[in-house]
Design a binder for these strands. Structure first.
Length: 315
DNA sequence: GTCCAGGGTGAAA
DNA sequence: TTTCACCCTGGA
């Protein structure tokens, strides 16, 4: 049974799920592709995770998503926060139209049209991408997950059902605590970042209203936050669709598809891409990253997906 | 068992 | 502009 969005809570005692008419969403690519790090696939293909102080499961459905509370509470309050989280305000249609014939993005759009750019909590996003330095997705998930489980509030039945720890809590826990959890040298960046946010020296919510440049400059004031990490936080949590994230994989793609010089600096390439993709930079970036990732995976497995079958869950 | 890369950053040369 | 240390985990 799917509850229409406009059904009120008085119609029945407990609303068990809501349907979000947001069009097709590729949940694996979107929730588990390197933007966010606390979503876990269930046996039934749905993803379980936390948004704010709510534990939810999200499943793909015809024309949108079905969201169920996993914390015993009512589903009726989830519609707005979930649409928001899924990036519904972004200009996905404009992006699709503009780049339908692009040699790199056109095939990507046809191949996995349901990839979205999330709109996450800025503090969790900042923490996660400071953790991403010289790391990889499995390890980032491990690090962020362990910190959340040790320091966050339990808001559900399972171990992972925890709200992300407040910056005050991270700051009080201290560097050694984070090192003992396996965060490595990133611990010495995370504690000052938590302090700056906790003391109000860095007001992340204000950066949603600030210009791209002002917001980026504010973020890169933090130790451990360079251009790359800042662009991730700007794109995935601070409403900056003009942010373009460049790592070595993306640089290779920019060279292959758009003739950006092979040995261009990462910041030159990012500026070039921001100019070229404009307000669609974050979307273009995510589709390009996903395409590179699949290509690399295919190459690692011996070419065009022919010699070996994909693993059960693609990871 | 060893080796290596992994969505970087900051400091020094 | 380039090089190097920084931590540590999983896979080859």
């Amino acid at each position: 049974m799917i509850i229409p969005e406009n059904q009120t809570a008085t119609d029945i005692t407990t609303v068990e799920q809501v349907f979000l008419p947001v069009g097709f969403v590729d949940l694996e690519a979107t929730l588990d592709g390197g933007q966010a790090f606390r979503w876990w696939p269930q046996n039934d293909g749905a993803y379980r995770g936390v948004i704010g102080r709510r534990v939810v499961t999200i499943a793909e459905a015809d024309g949108g998503l079905v969201v169920r509370p996993a914390d015993g509470k009512d589903a009726s309050g989830l519609t707005h926060s979930l649409s928001d989280y899924m990036g519904q305000d972004q200009d996905l249609e404009g992006f699709r139209t503009r780049f339908a014939d692009d040699p790199c993005l056109g095939p990507a759009l046809r191949g996995y049209s349901g990839l979205r750019v999330l709109r996450q909590d800025p503090w969790e996003c900042l923490f996660s991408f400071i953790c991403s330095s010289t790391s990889n997705i499995p390890r980032i998930k491990l690090n962020v997950g362990v910190v959340a489980e040790r320091l966050g509030y339990s808001i559900g039945r399972k171990t992972r059902d925890v709200s992300f720890p407040e910056p005050e809590t991270i700051f009080e826990a201290g560097e050694q605590f984070l090192r003992d959890l396996g965060l490595g040298f990133r611990a010495k960046y995370l504690v000052p970042a938590a302090e700056a946010v906790a003391l109000g020296q860095l007001r992340l919510s204000d950066l949603r209203e600030a210009s791209y440049t002002d917001a980026r400059n504010a973020l890169t004031e933090l130790p451990g936050v360079g251009r790359k990490v800042a662009d991730c936080v700007l794109a995935f949590s601070l409403d900056k669709p003009e942010s373009f994230i460049v790592d070595r994989h993306i640089l290779r793609a920019l060279h292959r598809w758009y003739d950006v010089p092979e040995k261009a600096s990462l910041s030159y390439a990012a500026d070039w891409a921001r100019d070229y993709f404009g307000e669609h930079s974050a979307l273009a970036n995510q589709y390009m990253f996903h395409r590179e990732r699949l290509a690399r995976r295919a190459a690692d497995w011996g070419g065009a997906h022919t010699e070996r079958a994909l693993p059960e869950d693609g990871r």
